[in-house]
Design a protein around this nucleic acid. Structure first.
Lengths: 215, 215
DNA sequence: GTCTATAATCAGATAGAC
DNA sequence: GTCTATCTGATTATAGAC
């Protein structure tokens, strides 16, 4: 009795379809990716694809579930809360939003082809945001972050917006076609600059000491 | 010898098509809005629509041009630069992004159905961002804004991201279906909170004194 | 300018042989 | 599990009468 959306068959083909779909969704958007293209890229026939996923919606949902698990794991896994942990989690989030960037392109459009996504997306969003709120509260209590409670919610939302739509911004306004590691660094720095004005000296020092990874 | 993308016919029908298209684009996204739906909503036949716009791309471009003119007018018109003017212009921008919110849903997807939009969108983006940069520099010189030069660019980009994707955020994460004036206020407050840490006392007082409009 | 066809294409999805 | 063949419906766009 698994928790997955797509019910029946397992095996390597199914996994390959999901992986291929994710790649193509990211490249062209889920709406402009046809089942035909996915099947072809996965090296199977279209009819076969429909054996594994009885509709495109179920396939989209299966891809989403991978993101969901990764996101949950990232933000609940290890409740340790040193500044370094926050740093790593933020980086993990950036890599995740990049790996599943099609989810951040046009949610309304995505929900149009996969209506069952609406509820699950909202639930995930609430879960994650609650967790981040706790993290911010923890930082504040520890005296690492100095921010008024009413400003805290604004910061949280701005944080969320920047951390979610940095890719869309780079694509639309900077003409970036392929995101490279340096773009990840860029988005990362943007989010850090949101925090910067509220950071205590201690926290600032800790963050600056974290080395930039070279991938 | 007009500057518009769509060349030939003028008149009320053409204008009505553009207006109708904009409304439907905003409602369902430009990609999921069919020429049939536009024609029907405009009360004309589909063949007639294709008389006025020889392709869907030209229609998209015509709608974009209205946005472009409004945006240019908003950010170049009246180079006066009192804090109050900045305030009004920011509000104007929020109303504009709302009135043409389909442009901020999925730029890559939009460019897929209207490739000629790519260049014009990027050019507009550069123009606007340059203007905002000047505004920030002006505020800094006037001593109203206190921010280090290297932080200034980060602020500018975050500003741009929040001011562009606040709608997408509300739709995706708050489940907002119809944007009301209070949502405009919300987005407005989000952007102001980006500035807040860098505001001098004088500027802060001026902004707070600007009344909230009740539409 | 506006309409009535209708073409051309392509999407998601199904039936049934292997 | 995988393939071939096919259906159905929708979408952009055109030709030509009024």
């Amino acid at each position: 009795m698994g928790k997955s959306a797509a019910s029946s068959p397992r095996g390597p083909t199914r996994a390959r379809i999901i992986e291929t779909a994710c790649v193509l969704f990211n490249r062209n958007g889920a709406e402009r990716t046809t089942t035909r293209a996915i099947a072809e890229a996965a090296g199977i026939n279209e009819g076969n694809l429909y054996y594994h996923f009885r509709s495109k919606e179920l396939l989209v949902l299966a891809v989403f579930e991978r993101f969901e698990h990764a996101a949950d794991a990232l933000l609940t896994d290890g409740s340790s809360s040193t500044p370094f942990d926050y740093h790593l989690r933020l980086r993990g989030w950036f890599e995740l939003t990049w790996a599943y960037r099609f989810l951040f392109r046009d949610v309304a459009g995505l929900e149009a082809i996969a209506p069952s996504l609406t509820v699950r997306l909202r639930r995930l969003s609430v879960r994650l945001q609650r967790r981040v709120r706790t993290m911010i509260a923890g930082l504040t209590e520890a005296g690492l972050l100095r921010i008024a409670p009413e400003e805290s919610d604004r910061l949280l939302d701005n944080l969320w917006i920047v951390a979610s739509y940095w890719i869309a911004f780079l694509v639309a306004h900077r003409g970036v076609k392929q995101i490279a590691p340096r773009h990840l660094e860029w988005g990362f720095a943007q989010v850090r600059s949101l925090f910067a004005p509220y950071l205590g000296a201690e926290m600032r020092g800790l963050l600056d000491s974290v080395p930039v990874r070279d991938e």
